[in-house]
Write a protein that binds this DNA or RNA. Structure first.
Lengths: 131, 131
DNA sequence: ACAATTGCCGACTAATTTGATATACTTTCT
DNA sequence: AGAAAGTATATCAAATTAGTCGGCAATTGT
């Protein structure tokens, strides 16, 4: 299940996408609109800033804004950033240690197909689609 | 992400489906074949027995067997039994308290569609398909 | 210049889930 | 009787989740 970090991150990006493009939107404004704790949102924003999806600006009339068009940001990217992976099972996430049982595993094909479906769905969905 | 409970349960069902239909297969045999701790598998089997997917028989030449044809058991059923839900987000799982933010939520439609895809995929996949 | 505003950073915590393990007991067949 | 098997209950350590808190740094409107 997608955690609040991933879910909130998407809502946050959509919220920013709805604002005037060049304006810096303060966190307190977003938090209030989205009904999410400001303190908790900070953690999420920090990651998004580090990954250069948004930029922050301190001081009066500071805030956050997107660094690129919402059309060019997929939901998959954001989810992978926040959740680490969207793989349905541990053995399909990147960096997973190879499973010695894999060759005999009766279920791996099913998980692989489902993983592909998932990546396809979220990889085609952009932030702009949700605005 | 699907936990080991769900994943092991499916492998276990497939393993049983591969055995002679009326024979009781002892847990130790399954555990060895599937490389899963016998003690841990017990927890999983207990749930499957309680839900009447399999029956256990004590004593010598005892073990477990399926109660119905593998063609009639979907992966979705097993996953829901073991994981509680396959919903991608909390607000779509059954028994979730209604979200006051739902009407304004920019992402609920996406999650709902993905949830439908998921239920469709696993609802059509049966244990027999994995044998 | 300065005070208010806003982001940035690291640590902390409480509750829950996960992936088991251990022990004792009951049932059944030979 | 005794071995082989399932049944039941309890416990546990580690990780994850969802948040909170306090303080520092940057910026700007006046």
């Amino acid at each position: 299940m997608i955690s609040t970090k991933g879910r909130y991150a998407i809502r946050l990006m959509v919220d920013l996408a709805r604002q005037e493009r060049e304006r810096f939107t303060p966190l307190s404004e977003i938090a209030e609109r989205q009904c999410i704790s400001k303190l908790y949102l900070e953690i999420i924003l920090k990651k998004l800033v580090a990954a250069k999806y948004i930029v922050g600006k301190s001081g009066k009339s500071g805030g956050y804004k997107l660094t690129k068009e919402p059309e060019k940001i997929t939901v998959l990217e954001i989810l992978e950033l926040m959740e680490g992976t969207v793989a349905p099972v541990a053995c399909l996430s990147k960096g997973a240690k190879s499973c010695p049982f894999r060759k005999k595993c009766s279920t791996i094909a099913m998980w692989t197909e489902y993983d592909k479906m998932t990546r396809d769905y979220f990889g085609k969905k952009t932030i702009a689609d949700l605005v």
